Amino acid sequence: MEIQELQKKDVSFKEFQEANDMHIQDVRNIMNELALKLMVAGVTHDYTKKSDEKLFYKNFLSTINNNTDFVGDEWYQLHIKNERHHLLSRCPEDVNLIDILEMITDCVCAGMARSGDIRPIEIDNNILNKALVNTTEMIKNMITVK
């Protein structure tokens, strides 16, 4: 996305309006790109539960029938390696606020479906700060100033 830089000090009202309109449109465009990324995260959420469903089922049964460690099992390790939203188990280096929103949504939906309630969601401040910095950089990289 291209953004035009405005550096004149003596700006006419028409130039001001054009710059104002451009800024509003620029923000709209970036927000639309972010919304698309959020939609993609929703569409691909927990894809390993389907792509490796037999292994997931095997590990699930082993946990409830044999008291094995589900988190240490093969499927869960594959799951957290390939999916970005399990930030407390494995936080990607380029974590962003879309990952944060997916994690929050996942926790709320799982809690409500399983018990009708949610546990407090805790995300380390370092992860939140890194997500903020990375999201800022992601947005910056969406922009070309002309």
Rank of each mutant, 00 (worst) to 15 (best):
Asn29Glu: 10
Tyr57His: 12
Leu128Gly: 03
Leu97Val: 13
Ile3Asn: 00
Val95Lys: 02
Met112Tyr: 11
Met31Ile: 09
Phe13Trp: 06
Ala113Glu: 03
Lys37Met: 04
His86Glu: 04
Leu61Arg: 15
Arg84Tyr: 15
Asn59Trp: 06
Gly116Trp: 00
Ala110Phe: 04
Gly72Arg: 15
Ile3Thr: 03
Cys91Arg: 01
Asn59Ile: 05
Thr144Gln: 05
Tyr47Pro: 00
Asn20Gln: 08
Ser115Ile: 15
Ile100Glu: 01
Lys37Ser: 03
Arg119Met: 09
Lys50Ile: 10
Ile123Ser: 02
Lys14Trp: 03
Ser62His: 11
Phe70Cys: 02
Lys8Glu: 04
Thr63Gln: 00
Asn129Ile: 05
Glu122Phe: 15
Ile104Gly: 06
Arg84Glu: 03
Val11Asn: 02
Glu137Tyr: 07
Ile80His: 04
Thr63Val: 02
Lys58Pro: 01
Ile30Tyr: 00
His45Met: 00
Met1Ser: 07
Lys140Cys: 03
Asp21Gly: 07
Ser51Leu: 14
Met1Gln: 05
Thr135Leu: 02
Met22Ala: 10
Lys81Trp: 08
Gln4Gly: 09
Lys140Gly: 04
Asp99Gly: 11
Val145Glu: 02
Ile143Trp: 01
Met31Phe: 06
Leu132His: 04
Ile98Met: 05
Ala41Val: 09
Ile24Pro: 00
Val133Gly: 03
Asn32Lys: 11
Phe13His: 04
Asp46Phe: 14
Cys91Gln: 03
Val71Gln: 04
Val108Asp: 06
Asn126Glu: 13
Lys130Thr: 10
Gln77Ala: 04
Asp46Met: 04
Glu83Val: 09
Glu15Gln: 14
Asn96Gly: 09
Asp94Gly: 09
Thr136Lys: 14
Asn125Cys: 05
Tyr76Gln: 06
Tyr47Asp: 00
Leu128Ile: 15
Glu5Ile: 05
Asn59Lys: 11
Thr44Lys: 13
Met22Tyr: 12
Asp21Met: 10
Asn66Tyr: 14
Lys81Asn: 13
Gln4Ser: 08
His23Pro: 00
Asp94Ser: 10
Tyr47Glu: 01
Gln17Met: 09
Met31Val: 09
Gln17Ala: 07
Lys58Cys: 02
Gln7Met: 02
Leu97Phe: 12
Met31Tyr: 08
Ile143Glu: 00
Ala41Thr: 13
Leu101Gln: 07
Asn66Ile: 06
Asn65Leu: 15
Ala41Trp: 09
Lys50Tyr: 15
Leu34Asp: 01
Leu78Phe: 04
Ile121Leu: 08
Glu53Phe: 15
Cys109Lys: 06
Leu38Asp: 08
Ile104Cys: 09
Asp46Gln: 10
Asn82Ser: 13
Ile118Lys: 01
Asn126Ala: 14
Lys81Val: 09
Leu34Phe: 14
Gln25Val: 11
Met103Tyr: 04
Lys140Pro: 01
Asp106Tyr: 09
Thr68Trp: 01
Arg90Asp: 07
Gly72Glu: 14
Tyr76Arg: 08
Leu6Tyr: 15
Glu5Arg: 11
Met142Tyr: 11
Asp10Gly: 04
Ala19Met: 05
Ser115Ala: 13
Thr144Gly: 03
Glu122Met: 10
Lys14Asp: 12
Lys130Asp: 03
Leu78Asp: 01
Lys37Tyr: 14
Lys14Glu: 11
Lys58Arg: 13
Ile121Arg: 06
Ile121Thr: 12
His45Arg: 11
Lys9Gln: 12
Lys49Met: 12
Val11Glu: 00
Lys37Pro: 04
Glu122Trp: 13
Thr63Arg: 03
Glu122Gln: 10
Lys140Val: 08
Leu88Val: 08
Ile123Met: 03
Arg84Pro: 00
Met31Glu: 10
Ser12Val: 12
